[in-house]
Nucleic acid binder design. Sequence first.
RNA 1: GGAGAGGUGCCUGAGUGGCCGAAAGGGCCGGUUUGCUAAACCGUUGUACUCUGUAAAAGGGUACCGAGGGUUCGAAUCCCUCCCUCUCCGCCA
Length: 420
Amino acid sequence: MLDMKFIRENPDAVLQNVANKNEKVNVQELLDLDAQRRTLVQETDALKNQRNVTSEEIAKLKKNKEDATVKIEEMRTVGDSIKANDDKLREIEEQMQFIVLRIPNMMHSSVPVGASADDNVEVRSTAQRIPQEFRKNHLEIAKQLGILDFERGAKVSGSGFGFYTGKGATLERAMINMFLDLHIAQHGYTEMMPPFVVNRASMLGTGQIPKMEDDMYHCTVDDLFLIPTAEVPLTNYYRDDVLNEKDLPTKFAGYSACFRREGGSYGKDTRGFLRVHEFNKVELVKFVKPETSYNELELLVGDVEDILRALELPFRVLQLCTGDTGFSSAKTYDLEVWSPAEQKFLEVSSCSNFESFQARRANIRFRNEQGKLEFVHTLNGSGLATSRIMVALLEHHQTEDGRIRIPEALRPYTRFDWIG
RNA sequence: GGAGAGGUGCCUGAGUGGCCGAAAGGGCCGGUUUGCUAAACCGUUGUACUCUGUAAAAGGGUACCGAGGGUUCGAAUCCCUCCCUCUCCGCCA
């Protein structure tokens, strides 16, 4: 959420940013409502002031056993006006809220303007576009080795769900543990195990709602949502809190299952693990001081790169252009691993700086040196999602005779060196 | 699921219709005292919106005592709904 004061003072920049991000929002209407609101607030506050002053007079009159009926009668109409104004005010504020919640975050000045993923910029790459050669795609090899079962996943739950079986399940568990351990021991994150179900306010706080509400699994009787990422509970951990400056940056690493309906994305990367309704992910979340947030973003990307290196997977880092950057983000890097089977890069992580956008929505603040309250900056990144990494491992570490070599870094966790 | 208790400022805790943005104590910050520490004493101590205004400041108004409604000239205080916490019972991992 953007600061209303900022929108009021920089309407052109906001409009340009909305256009750059391919969003459609009626900013002008918001500005009109804002002007209306301020006039109304002044009027109403004056009436309330009158009521307060007169009420005190009435109290005095009554104390002296004098007659106050005239003033009481007078205040009755003032009270009615106040009520009418407050109703109108509430209506205006609801309309404003509706629009403000749909205005995307301002892009950082370093983000290239572009329409789509084609305009993203490669920052660095360790990846060679190796050919497919003997490699089977992850579904084939997984089936052959008996480590994933999507058919029974579909029977039991539906399309887009899978079982990990045998060594596949062990490998999955091993990855989660390895990722967590690395971030905790080497990168200084605090481990968190969040709830996988959150309330509406939390979804609103991190910005999934209202824009993405249809992509969430929603338990209507309780108005609770299955989380699409641990970002939601981890960031909302500090919703409505005031953090100590000395505790910043605060860094969380948390595992969760992630649930996404993926409505409307059928036909795109739908095979096997490329797009599923439920997957496992270790998420990294940071709460930082505003002046350090861009440096923290670079460090965050580095933390994720360390995992990819440990897994011996070639990758590249992309800086997303304006059109491809998420709604809440000011700047995002994607990390992609080359898929020999698909002959294309697959996104495995997305690292974003949200600046104060989420903090303002979720009301997460800290007290600065001057003792003033200030919104923190929040960041997060996948570190990493296991489903896409499973795909990458099965493809990259596949041998010609159809076996999978477990990278050194994972072996203490799997307790086996090969699958097959 | 049943029964009860409760949610007040950074914390403890008072406050059952007007003098309550809110007693008292503690904490915090500033000051005095002090060889140092401690103690004592004095003072200060919220947030949001809005208006006036400045280089920065400062000041006025409004709102906020879990959330949202209602009653009333006037609500922390009365009524309704919801949320949360705690205790006991039942049920169950």
